[in-house]
Every structure is written in C-alpha cells, then in structure tokens.
Computed example of a mutant assay.
Amino acid sequence: MKNVVVVLLVLFVWTACNSRKAEEGGRQQHTTDVQILEELQGVWLDDNTESPLFKIEGDSIYYTGQSNAPQQFAFVNDTLIVYGTQMVYYPVRLRTEHALFFTTPQGDQVSLHKSEVDSVYVEPQAEIRQPAEVLEKDSVIMFDGKRYRGYAYINPTGIKVIRPGISEEGLSVDNVFYDNVIHICVYQGTQRLYSKDIKRQMFSGLVPDDFLNNSILSDMDFIGVNVNGYVFEATLCMPDGPTCYNIHLLVDKEGKLEFKLRQ
C-alpha cells in the first residue's frame, strides 16, 4: 500500500512539473519581434468611446481597472497571446503602429487606436494596494443572567486571491482581491475569556479545496452563548460571486475551537 501511495505522489509531482515546464516553454517560444514590441508601447483607446482600455509597457499589459493585475503578453503570427491565470489567444485582424483590431475568444471585435499622449491613463502600479482599514464588530449576548460581549476585528492583509474575469470589452483580466485575518475575542465584563486569530486556511477539509483556495474570509459575527461555550459565525465567500459558506465556530469553556458548517 505504501508503494502505491509513493508511486501516486511521484506521478502527481511529475505531472505538475511537466505542466509547469510546458507553460514556461510556451512562453519562451512566444517571442515578440523587437520592432512590433516597440510599436505596441503606449496607451490604447477604444475606437467607439475614446476611453483607455490598457497601457502596454515593456512586455506587460496594464489595464485601466484598479483591481486588475498586469499581464505579460507576446505577439506571434498575427496573434496576441496574453499570460494570466489562463493563457488567452486573440486573433489580430489588423495591426499598425497606431491601430490594433482583434477578436476575443467570445467573438467580440475590439478596435483600438494609440493615444498621442500617456496622460490620459493612470500610471500603472506593479503592486495593487491592499485596503488598510480594520473593521470592528461587536455584539452583546445575555446567558444565564450574565452579560457576554464578543468582538470580531476584520483585518485586511497582503494575501492576494487572483480570480480570472472578463471585462466589458470581452478581454480576459485577472482580478485581484485581498484576504482577511479576523481576530475574535469574548469578554465578560473586563475579563477576557477567549481570543484567537482566524485564517481562511483553518477551514481546510471543511469546504472543497478549490473553493477554499479561491475565496476570502469576508465576515465574522458573535452569535451566541450556551452551556457548551461561545459561538461565532464566519462567512467564506468567492470575492466576485454570490457563493458563500457559513461556518459556525464553537469555543468551549476550555478554549478548544471546533468548526461546523451551518445547515
């Protein structure tokens, strides 16, 4: 049995490494002609709205959306190849130093022209700034004649969760979101009964791994006290969609923490 497990692990690692090498090899093969790369530099505007869609600087595309991560690209054989969380191919119908017409994977036609000045565009930033505000929540709950107060401090972090998305123009973009670490504590009067930092990874095994890796710990509430201890409710959500898991955090009087999905 141990030999089977070892073989499976080796195959998994070999497959992952080869997949990564294949992607890196694809990038190395996709080399943009120096003259074409130079001609693509600058801010590109939508022909219909005159609004800036993106700026090309070096071998990267910087989108106008402040939550969009920059993406590397290559221009090969009349195809614009963009490397984000997914590799996307845009067939180019026309390209000159001042015009760029291409088709998105959804079939949308994108017609752009280069701006004469860069001032119409906010200068790109390699790192999108995470929010700095800490949100404090508290609730008072009476139980057995005693007054309990529970706090939740939602602390933004620099931990990025990158989710692929589609812009209004049909462009494939990588949206950047930031996870939270939530500090919870319970007081009775001035006596602190419990405190702990809660992180998204603590819910591993309780929700599907794919959901966990692409979600953020978005909210926390102190919802109850009973004979067994204190109850908080955490909310784990996809940052760009309505799908969420609500998880009860059960803290017993000895400080042992258990998680349970809310039914």
Rank of each mutant, 00 (worst) to 15 (best):
146 K>L: 08
133 E>D: 10
89 Y>H: 12
245 Y>S: 01
40 L>C: 07
196 K>T: 02
105 P>Q: 05
224 G>E: 09
259 F>P: 03
200 R>P: 03
33 D>W: 08
67 S>V: 10
188 Q>N: 06
137 K>I: 09
144 D>Q: 15
239 P>C: 04
245 Y>F: 13
22 A>P: 03
140 V>I: 05
114 K>M: 00
234 A>F: 11
163 R>C: 00
21 K>N: 13
60 S>L: 06
196 K>S: 07
34 V>D: 07
177 F>A: 08
164 P>A: 03
157 T>G: 08
62 Y>M: 02
219 D>A: 10
44 W>R: 05
221 D>E: 15
216 I>Q: 05
69 A>G: 03
262 R>W: 05
144 D>P: 08
142 M>P: 00
76 V>R: 11
22 A>S: 14
45 L>M: 03
83 Y>G: 03
219 D>L: 06
258 E>V: 01
220 M>Y: 04
191 Q>P: 00
62 Y>K: 04
4 V>H: 10
144 D>L: 01
39 E>T: 05
4 V>L: 13
252 D>A: 06
126 A>H: 09
192 R>V: 08
190 T>G: 01
8 L>V: 14
86 Q>I: 07
233 E>T: 12
12 F>N: 06
115 S>K: 00
43 V>Y: 02
126 A>N: 12
139 S>Y: 08
227 V>N: 15
118 D>I: 11
179 D>L: 09
54 F>G: 02
57 E>M: 09
91 P>S: 01
